[in-house]
Design a protein around this nucleic acid. Sequence first.
RNA 1: GGUUCCGUAGCUCAGUUGGACAGAGCAACAGCCUUCUAAGCUGUGGGUCGCGCGUUCGAAUCGCGCCGGAAUCACCA
Length: 593
Amino acid sequence: MQRIDQHIREITLKAVEALWGTILPEEQVQIQKTRRDFSGDFTVVVFPLLRYSKQSPEETGKALGRQMVEQSDLIDGYNVIKGFLNLIVAQRYWKGLLEEDLRTPRYGSSPVKEDAERVMIEFSSPNTNKPLHLGHIRNNLLGHSVARILEASGKVVRKVNLVNDRGIHICKSMLAWQLEGKGRDPASAGMKGDHMVGDYYVRFDQIYKEQIESLVQNGVSRKDAEQEAPVLLQAREMLRKWEADDPEVRQLWETMNSWVYEGFEDTYRRLGISFDRTYYESQTYSLGKEIVLKGLKDGVLYRKADGSVWADLEDEGLDHKLLLRSDGTSVYMTQDVGTAHQRYTEWPFDSHIYVVGNEQNYHFQVLSIILKKLGFAWAEKLYHLSYGMVELPEGKMKSREGTVVDADDLMDEMETTARQMSEELGKLSSYREDEREQIYRKVGMGALKYFILKVDPKKNMTFDPRESVDFNGNTGPFIQYTYARIQSVLRKGHRIQRAVGSLDLIEKEIALIRMMFDYPDVITEASRALNPSLVANFLYELAKEFNQFYHDHSILSAESREQVRQRLLLVEVAGRIIESGMALLGIEVPDRM
RNA sequence: GGUUCCGUAGCUCAGUUGGACAGAGCAACAGCCUUCUAAGCUGUGGGUCGCGCGUUCGAAUCGCGCCGGAAUCACCA
């Protein structure tokens, strides 16, 4: 079935030609959805046409409207207000849409074609020295959702994770454990491995500070004390041993990392995210060196007297960037050059998205330029999905002040709130315990995920814990509730066949269908802009529209049997779109709540 | 100082390529459950869209300049 907006575009062109003998370029036709406060479905803006009609906006709109109604049997009527021609679309069209398009199970998603675009997306990228926190949650949810949205828009997606499993920060945890925790492991301590390792990281910092203080007391300058504190020297020594493949250090490193991974796995599972491939920095940190050396040979890069290798980016308005240290080792940038190349070799992609916070904007700007300088054609296909910081009402999260919101704690809290809320309402008392728990989980996680994903990724956001556990208004649970209501109606009317009938749709029904008509475009736009918030806001609008309809009109007790059948179809379709849209956000919907 | 991003109601946020008097939610107040789930629906109040100039028939949206905030500019990641 041809899209009605496309149809309107075409007949507008024809009408203009018939009326004023001008063939105007398609872009000149501006079609938008009619605003709520006016009657009509679609609006043609007539201002750009005045130069052809040589008449007033009102006359132009009227002439055009008259002509279009005559030309098309899908346009039932029109009205002109100021320079806006509002068109009323025929019932026939909306019913056809409901019956043929909206009804198809995968409505809104594009099929993956043979030559589909291949997109690699990196997200999560945690350090193995501490558990995941609220900031990681935004990253993970964004990455997962964008991956889903890209898939729905017909792309082949590969999700990858890059774990920062080496470096001085890991050694700090290891050292603190050696000093104070020998013999302890997550099982014996009864805690998650990532939390336990994180505690030792914090403990290291405490010891470090104590040592600085005592050095200062003994007359050492603070600056020197910070450099000479025994634990810091020990940690550095440990890193050196790690790099020298010292068996004992490596063994400890393996053990503690494995604790962390078990913890992460648990958190990922609860968040509902997964990866097609996980890379470890311990295996990639020396990558890129050869590429850089080749770049040096080709004269793209240059070497300083001390042996370090640099890229000159002054032509791009930036400064100079180090790529190899004077001792020949790689830096982060070098590593990213290497991993990008490795990934492209393993899985040739058409584009590569990095979901990384906006504090690394400069890094990715430079990465892309350097890769281009080094001659990689795909350098232009790297996108940095740069998202804003998550702040608390009282300001930034600071680990030193203990204001970091832990991911696991947060999920626990959300589920607890969902449980309390549900028990207060008492709607689920007749269900089994495990069924109820599943619902609390879905609702709690839905609230958290929606709260974060409804905000435009590039904006910094405030996470107010009080607000996040509000399940009314523009929230995940509101949308889930709408879905549960729909399922309830469908259960009660499951014997009745769902079908479009011969009677006219009422205004609210058309409003719903018109909104669902937009769903494919919403996915396309969200995919283009890498922005799940567009899907979130669409679903909220749809749920709100549905609730109004639900409130004003009875579905199962509609006036006629035919109307019941038609409404049930409409309701079923709305439910399916809510379900599929929420899935794009990684949110599950409960059948009851 | 350079670069990038943000500035919309008391608070949290929408506002697709410029279009009709700028929208939601929360908070406040007032209503609606013998009928399909009231985690819902309806109503009231609340705004110089940071400021100024410009482009345009038309600017929250585009351009320029200010003001305010964030991030970044390491032989850290």
